[in-house]
Simulated assay, not measured.
Amino acid sequence: MPDSPTGTPAGLSEDVEDLKAQVRALTNQVNKLTQPPAADHTDQAEDQDRTNEETEEGAEGWQFPPFILLLDHAEYGAELRALVEFVEGVLVPGYLDEASADARWCHQWTQHPVAIARLHALWLAWQELTDPDTCGYAGPSTWHRDHYDPCMRELRASTGPFQGCTKGEHQIAHRMPSLVPSAWRHAGSC
């Protein structure tokens, strides 16, 4: 599926909306099947309306995972410290071999906003998919296939964020963006 200009896979937003509609329909169906039969059809209709309203309110109150580049300064610092522990404690010693022209890595990765964003997303997936209570025992395999492999292909590619970095020599300016566009911010953040 080709990507849109924003880098999101084409059709993803339609798929998400379809999934939301399916969840609402299934929730209504479960509620209908688990409620005792009502003698009065008016009560059933009111109950159904209440269920629909609760489902819609739940969808509006949905909590999205934090996008690290949009956090305020204090939250960003705390999240970055935790991310550094994951990257330096798990990824670097366990997964990242010697850097090469085909598989780049920058020891100053925290100075690359794209790397921070991708590694943070990878870490969020790790937290969810390595817990058998939330994902079963296939979670680590899913994490590798769906998250780690694509993330590393993008980060370590010759055209990735580390393209100007070579072992011991950096040819790009390592910097963090000073201002995140206001359109990216969530209401009430920062």
Rank of each mutant, 00 (worst) to 15 (best):
C106D: 08
H73R: 15
C151H: 03
P66S: 12
M1S: 07
S178I: 14
V84F: 01
D18Y: 05
D47I: 12
H41Y: 11
L91P: 03
A38L: 11
A74S: 14
P177N: 06
V90Q: 11
D18I: 08
E98S: 14
T55K: 04
Q44N: 07
L122C: 12
R118A: 12
V114F: 04
P5S: 06
N52V: 15
V92E: 07
A78I: 13
F162D: 01
R156S: 07
W143N: 01
Y95M: 14
G136F: 00
L155V: 05
Q127S: 04
W109C: 02
V84M: 04
V16G: 01
H186M: 15
R118G: 02
L124R: 07
E14G: 06
C106E: 00
L33V: 13
T55M: 14
T42V: 14
W126H: 12
E53K: 15
A173E: 12
H120Q: 03
S182W: 13
Q29M: 09
K167M: 05
L71V: 03
G77R: 14
V23Y: 07
E17C: 09
V90P: 02
T51Q: 13
S189I: 10
S141G: 15
N31Q: 08
D49S: 10
D102Q: 10
E46H: 13
R104Y: 00
Q171E: 10
M176I: 06
P140D: 02
L124D: 05
P93H: 02
Q163L: 05
A117M: 05
